[in-house]
Amino acid sequence: MQKRCTQMFLNKRKAAYFYAAFFLLFTMVIGISIGTISVPILSVIKILTSYLGPDSLVNNVDPMHVNIVQNIRLPRVLLAGLVGASLSIAGAAFQGLLRNPLADPYTLGVSSGASVGAVITLFFQFSIPILGGLTLPFMSVLFSFMTIIFVVFFAKKMDPAMRVETIILTGIIIGSFLSAFISLMIALTGNELRQIIGWLLGSVSMRGWEYIRIFLPFFLVGTGLLLSQGKELNALAFGEERAQHLGIHVQRRKMIILLAGSMLTGAAVAVSGTIGFVGLVIPHFVRILVGPDHRHLMGVSLFVGSGFMILADLLARTIITPTELPIGVITALVGAPVFAGLLLRRRKRG
């Protein structure tokens, strides 16, 4: 009976990985296929597999479709997926580290920092010569890093042990301050208002491969670091003292998780704006599927988060064509009711 129970749980976990991966593939294919010009699913699959194998597969596909897929849809879907994955894994890690299921990647004010960088760029309409069009993401990442360094520095000044309560408090203080700063710039702005608001609500449209190239290193380093801290996060979830008693170098691990999570969040905000609810809802949902073990929670969240974001982007650009909605609106519209449902469900069970 015992054995079977464990077995079932293990199988459930394997199944979760399988379904999550399938979900991601499925959303990728339909995300690429559907749009103002529809690309047949078969062609999508052919074009995608051509990246892996022989180019010959693409030969009998409409060149316009190939062009749309390769230059517009694929980078867009990939970016949405990467952003969704980053926010979800960072959310899962922060919830564990801060021992608070209601934490999300924005709790520490990183997103406000990234936004300030972007809004400054939009407000002053400047560009750094070598970077050109990439000035905005560059400024955004730069500011997000400055923010997290400032949060950590300030928290350490306040409390040398850097307890999570202090970190959360510092994050909220700095986040509020930066938000006020953004509001100030919005108030002062004239023509660029729509641009700024549009960016703040989040979007992955018209980013192209360059953005993916900027984003990918942060993504790889960030997710790699977080995935290697699964066990430590499990222990940290029981409190820092408990974790130290179990043999975890709390200060070092905390710093790694904070920096990796912030790196992912900052980079995600930099390329796509502040997209809410993904980092909060996805880990919650996945926790129901695979349990609270962070090794699997973060792994499955990667797939589910990216699939969810691709789907949200698909909705954002198709629901009232030709107008594109900000993706943040969609994630919030979908995410909030889902989250409420999850909470209700938990209450019923509890």
Binding site: A237, G239, R242, D293
Partner: peptide, 13 residues
């Protein structure tokens, strides 16, 4: 090893 008085249990492990 330490058996402490209070343990944080935010998640259902």
């Amino acid at each position: 090893a330490v058996l402490s008085q209070h343990v944080n249990e935010s998640f259902s492990y």
